[in-house]
């Protein structure tokens, strides 16, 4: 397995994603239908349920539930920190997770936040971006919402890495309420954003798509705004703005992916060497 298999896997994802990347929304017709479907489900099912949840659940419990699931997400954050070779950030996020899981009573209290340790925002989609996999086309999934071709397998990976997904391993009676609670809480927290979209958007579908794609792009760049972003916007007035992300040709993308993967692999090698050295030192101390 190791590096060769992993590299093949990444390259195959890269090609699938790139083949779809001709335009950022080639499935607009399908996506709009899915968007309308999700909108109806939200209006008639999710929103009333979330409102009831907010009504019957005290704010303290709501915050506790949010903290609990957010803390479990910490496992994903640490894992993706490491996969992106952000080793010092991964140490901070691991410290945050450990502190909240212990002193924060299993994650219900966000102790780390009070001492100024903010959680990083990392997921497997960003990891794939760091490895050079292009974003691919925009996709709206039933019940789930906005995503991209690259984001789909990434979401599955993140779900598999999140301990909340394994509540069923304990017992079904715990699993079902945990999943429902998680979904209701997520919807209740999204209330403000959805209200803003309803108020501000002239075309809710386009507004959601553009803000989602831009937000994902911003996470890839760790929130840094390039000073050329608006110059690009002025220069390319004749072109589609969202196409900016998808301009590179196949060869370039492949080269970038190979280089990024190479540098990540190099960092892994270095870390492995450090661990090896540390182990040797410990062995040496033992024998003294």
């Amino acid at each position: 397995m190791t590096k060769k298999t992993l590299a093949t896997l990444i390259c195959s994802i890269l090609f699938v994603a790139n083949a779809q990347a001709k335009s950022h929304d080639p499935y607009e017709s399908f996506n709009r239908k899915m968007y309308d479907f999700n909108d109806s489900v939200d209006t008639y099912v999710a929103s009333p349920l979330a409102n009831s949840y907010k009504f019957i659940t005290p704010q303290l419990v709501q915050t506790g539930v949010f903290n609990f699931f957010n803390n479990l997400k910490g496992v994903n954050v640490v894992l993706n920190d490491v996969l992106q070779a952000k080793f010092s950030q991964s140490a901070a996020d691991l410290g945050r997770f450990t502190l909240n899981s212990t002193a924060g009573l299993g994650g219900f209290i966000d102790v780390a936040k009070h001492i100024g340790l903010e959680q990083s925002d990392e997921d497997f989609d960003q990891t794939l971006a760091v490895w050079g996999v292009p974003q691919g086309s925009y996709l709206v999934l039933p019940f789930v919402g906005p995503n991209t071709v690259r984001g789909m397998p990434a979401t599955a990976f993140d779900a598999a890495a999140n301990p909340a997904s394994y509540a069923s391993a304990i017992t079904y009676y715990i699993s079902a309420p945990v999943q429902v609670m998680s979904a209701l809480n997520a919807r209740a927290n999204a209330e403000g954003s959805l209200k803003f979209i309803n108020e501000a958007a002239l075309d809710k579908y386009v507004f959601t798509r553009e803000s989602f794609l831009q937000w994902r792009k911003s996470l890839e760049n760790d929130g840094k705004v390039s000073s050329t972003i608006d110059d690009d916007l002025m220069l390319t007035e004749e072109k589609s703005v969202s196409g900016l992300n998808l301009r590179l040709n196949d060869y370039k993308q492949f080269e970038i992916a190979a280089k990024s993967f190479g540098s990540v692999a190099q960092k892994f090698d270095l870390t492995a060497q450090n661990f090896e050295q540390a182990t040797r030192k410990i062995e040496h101390l033992k024998h003294r």
Partner: peptide
Amino acid sequence: IANGVSDLALKRSEYTAI
């Protein structure tokens, strides 16, 4: 650009689409 989302790019996508 608020939290990485460009108001100008967002509006342009919407306005040109309409």
